[in-house]
Deep mutational scan, measured.
Amino acid sequence: MASQGTKRSYEQMETDGERQNATEIRASVGKMIDGIGRFYIQMCTELKLSDYEGRLIQNSLTIERMVLSAFDERRNKYLEEHPSAGKDPKKTGGPIYKRVDRKWMRELVLYDKEEIRRIWRQANNGDDATAGLTHMMIWHSNLNDTTYQRTRALVRTGMDPRMCSLMQGSTLPRRSGAAGAAVKGVGTMVMELIRMIKRGINDRNFWRGENGRKTRSAYERMCNILKGKFQTAAQRAMMDQVRESRNPGNAEIEDLIFLARSALILRGSVAHKSCLPACVYGPAVASGYDFEKEGYSLVGIDPFKLLQNSQVYSLIRPNENPAHKSQLVWMACNSAAFEDLRVLSFIRGTKVSPRGKLSTRGVQIASNENMDAMESSTLELRSRYWAIRTRSGGNTNQQRASAGQISVQPAFSVQRNLPFDKPTIMAAFTGNTEGRTSDMRAEIIRMMEGAKPEEMSFQGRGVFELSDERAANPIVPSFDMSNEGSYFFGDNAEEYDN
């Protein structure tokens, strides 16, 4: 993207840094990872977990959730003011799984939030270390993106479920800051804005008074975040219109849905970061690795190297396929839920299948599930090659597409044709070009129609051997075009429920 120079890199967003050079960025990201790792080690000690239990991804998720809940100030305040039966607002906890007599047992633990905050700050040299908290939120978000298709949420806001490739980060909490905003897809931002506008339509006082002023500035800020994701002048001009509207209503909703559809071809720039579970960072720190000293990046080879040398386990339900569970977590670790499966298959070195073909449910185990038949197995999170994460949407291309997802959002900077089903997408653009945004709409449609099938995206960008740390010898991959490109292809993934 041309304006790259004016933006802070995501590592800076990730670490609240002012302008830093590459070495400083690597050190501050490393410091953040160190903090998460030290916190995780301490929690495993508190909970008396064995090494194996500490490497269980379900335990990692519970521990991450506990610290996120302990620092969720708004919710904590709300819980104190609106006490609900049987919930102690000062405590947080969740299921911890232990191996007892050759069987997995679930144990519900409860801790004072104050105590968890103390352990977290102690692991982070006394700081609140917001960057580390956001990092864990993005890992949870990436896992949700890989596990669930947001059909219901899309339909509720009037969008087409086939636009799911635009929904990265749709389950990120509001408090995820600049680093969170960077990884949100165009569809996620559109959905947040539509929800806001709908509230304004239904509630006369939404934009009024002292609160209304705050609401208005939040609305304009979200519009600017979305505008910054678009790469064409016409899309940005249309966002200006939406932002400046005196009284946002149905016309703005129409414009936003139009823009979301246009992003299936004229893709937005959305950041991709490899955020790993805390149970990967903990053992690495415990083994003596100093992330701050060595430096770390979320968008280069580092996460690949770390996963190459990590042992992570997962509980497996009786009829689940461990290899499929591994694929789910591998995609989440690489922030690749909406990437082209052919690119992923090449990088991973084994075939990556669409969601609907995987015999696996989510990673988390519900409290009512029976533990008797639970097994555990090693997650295979290694890769054959590594590639640089991208934040450009890439230019655009036609490809055989599917009944489910009709476009992709690249996660890796790797040369390819970008699949999208042009006739299906263009069919949504018939007729409606009147109104105050008509010239911009016409211009956007013209650009979409001009998108050429034979153009290559990320020209000359390749993948790298894991021994090639400096990215000196790019390998331009070859793809098996007979395979499906979309992950949520004609899909039956479970729906995400809060």
Score class of each variant (00 low, 15 high):
residue 3 S to P: 00
residue 7 K to G: 00
residue 8 R to M: 01
residue 12 Q to T: 08
residue 12 Q to A: 12
residue 12 Q to K: 15
residue 15 T to I: 15
residue 18 E to Q: 11
residue 21 N to G: 04
residue 23 T to W: 04
residue 24 E to L: 08
residue 27 A to C: 01
residue 28 S to D: 00
residue 28 S to H: 12
residue 33 I to R: 00
residue 38 R to A: 12
residue 42 Q to H: 12
residue 43 M to V: 13
residue 44 C to P: 02
residue 48 K to I: 09
residue 53 E to N: 06
residue 63 I to P: 12
residue 74 R to I: 02
residue 79 L to D: 10
residue 79 L to C: 10
residue 81 E to R: 05
residue 83 P to E: 08
residue 92 T to L: 06
residue 99 R to S: 11
residue 100 V to L: 14
residue 102 R to Y: 14
residue 106 R to S: 12
residue 110 L to S: 01
residue 111 Y to P: 01
residue 113 K to E: 09
residue 115 E to C: 03
residue 117 R to D: 03
residue 122 Q to K: 04
residue 123 A to K: 02
residue 125 N to Y: 13
residue 127 D to V: 15
residue 127 D to A: 14
residue 134 T to I: 03
residue 142 N to K: 10
residue 143 L to Q: 02
residue 145 D to L: 02
residue 147 T to F: 06
residue 152 R to H: 09
residue 153 A to P: 06
residue 160 D to S: 01
residue 161 P to Y: 00
residue 162 R to W: 08
residue 163 M to K: 02
residue 169 G to W: 06
residue 172 L to C: 12
residue 178 A to K: 12
residue 182 A to W: 05
residue 185 G to D: 11
residue 186 V to C: 08
residue 188 T to M: 03
residue 189 M to C: 15
residue 191 M to C: 11
residue 202 N to I: 12
residue 203 D to F: 00
residue 207 W to H: 02
residue 213 R to V: 06
residue 213 R to M: 13
residue 214 K to C: 03
residue 215 T to H: 00
residue 216 R to V: 06
residue 219 Y to E: 05
residue 220 E to M: 10
residue 222 M to S: 14
residue 232 T to D: 03
residue 233 A to V: 07
residue 235 Q to Y: 08
residue 245 S to L: 03
residue 247 N to Q: 10
residue 248 P to F: 02
residue 250 N to K: 07
residue 251 A to E: 09
residue 255 D to L: 04
residue 262 S to L: 03
residue 265 I to A: 14
residue 275 C to H: 05
residue 277 P to R: 10
residue 283 P to T: 14
residue 285 V to A: 08
residue 286 A to W: 15
residue 289 Y to D: 07
residue 290 D to I: 04
residue 293 K to R: 13
residue 295 G to V: 11
residue 300 G to D: 05
residue 302 D to A: 15
residue 308 Q to N: 14
residue 309 N to A: 14
residue 314 S to K: 02
residue 322 P to T: 15
residue 342 R to V: 06
residue 347 I to K: 06
residue 353 S to A: 11
residue 353 S to F: 12
residue 355 R to Y: 06
residue 357 K to M: 10
residue 361 R to L: 13
residue 363 V to L: 15
residue 366 A to Y: 05
residue 368 N to K: 14
residue 376 S to I: 06
residue 397 N to F: 15
residue 401 A to W: 00
residue 408 V to G: 00
residue 408 V to F: 07
residue 412 F to W: 03
residue 416 R to M: 07
residue 416 R to V: 01
residue 429 F to K: 01
residue 434 E to H: 12
residue 436 R to N: 07
residue 443 E to F: 01
residue 443 E to D: 15
residue 448 M to G: 03
residue 450 G to M: 09
residue 450 G to V: 12
residue 450 G to K: 08
residue 453 P to E: 00
residue 454 E to L: 15
residue 456 M to Q: 13
residue 463 V to M: 09
residue 465 E to I: 01
residue 466 L to K: 02
residue 469 E to T: 08
residue 469 E to R: 04
residue 473 N to T: 11
residue 474 P to L: 01
residue 478 S to I: 02
residue 479 F to N: 04
residue 480 D to S: 15
residue 480 D to Q: 12
residue 481 M to A: 07
residue 484 E to K: 14
residue 491 D to M: 14
residue 492 N to I: 04
residue 494 E to Y: 02
residue 495 E to T: 09
